[in-house]
Amino acid sequence: MSTEPLLKVENLTKHYVGRLSLAQRLAREKPSVVRAVSDVSLEVRKGEILGLIGESGCGKSTLGRAILRLHEPTSGRVTFDGQEVTTLDPMALKDIRRRMQIIFQDPYASLNPRRTVAEIVGLPLKLHDLATSADDLRAKVIAIIERIGLKANQLDRYPHQFSGGQRQRIGIARALISNPDFIVCDEPVSALDVSIQAQIIELLLELKREMGLTYLFISHDISVIGYLADRVAVMYLGEIVEMGPVDAVLSAPRHPYTQSLMSAVPDVDHPGHAQRVRLTGDLPSPLDPPSGCKFHTRCPLAVDRCRSEAPISEDLGGGHRAACHRLHEKLSLLETA
């Protein structure tokens, strides 16, 4: 595995600004701002899988889409293979989209119901002029369709004639046919049955090996991330609170949020021994995020400093980083609980 970063994200921020009615504008009301992603920096090295975990609504998907400029970032920089993506003009962006792809969560919503599998999977080839003729296009579509586990005689069917797992395979074929380098997997298995999940994960791993792919794998399922990721980033309310090699982060989590997440994973080997840290309350609204450390409203270790001052991410050695004021106080939720 090379250490050269394929994708570099620096201080990426995505805010959604609410629309104001005329009356609200006349009353000089300020628009509501949803701070979906704030000031996120990360690197994905060539050939690795970076797992991104967090609760629903924490901004994982928004981050993935902002990296691809599917949602225009508010500020920050994304650099892909030495090229700055955030400032590309539409033509250059189209070129880079051949190399950066996305696999969506919902295999029912991500395929156009009015187009056949051949049309859906062949679209990237058409858009980027990658096929020399109609026969060539068909041959390439058949090749990838058979690779991902469908049959060539299913090409002229419509998406509604397939099962969820088959549809997700079609989505994967569409993302891979243009031979990309980097793929954002946006919870590609969470809409599927558990038995199908394993098949799709194995397929994604095989394809990664064969095609030399790099994944940003978004999931809320820690066991999936633990199984396939090389490194992992933990997101809470639009910020990355802890990041590092998957073994270090998952076996010895340093941030209290990661610790609470880990304690929620059932342990088959020692049932009943697991210490559970239950977080109280809901994820605060990104419309009005807490001051200081965003986790302080639910953190059992929070002190006054956490309420006023935002912690800065610290290097803990071996590429492991976490952002918490009380990292060095040798406190752990798992011991105190």
Binding site: R65, Q101, I102, F104, N112, P113, R114, R115, H128
Partner: peptide, 26 residues
């Protein structure tokens, strides 16, 4: 707002393509 429209954008489809080929038939 459908994901398949977002998918077409992610593939690099033009606005014309998305309007005529992805949205209109639906």
């Amino acid at each position: 707002e459908q994901e398949y429209v977002e998918a077409a954008r992610a593939l690099g489809a033009s606005r014309k393509h998305i309007m005529i080929k992805e949205i209109l038939p639906n």
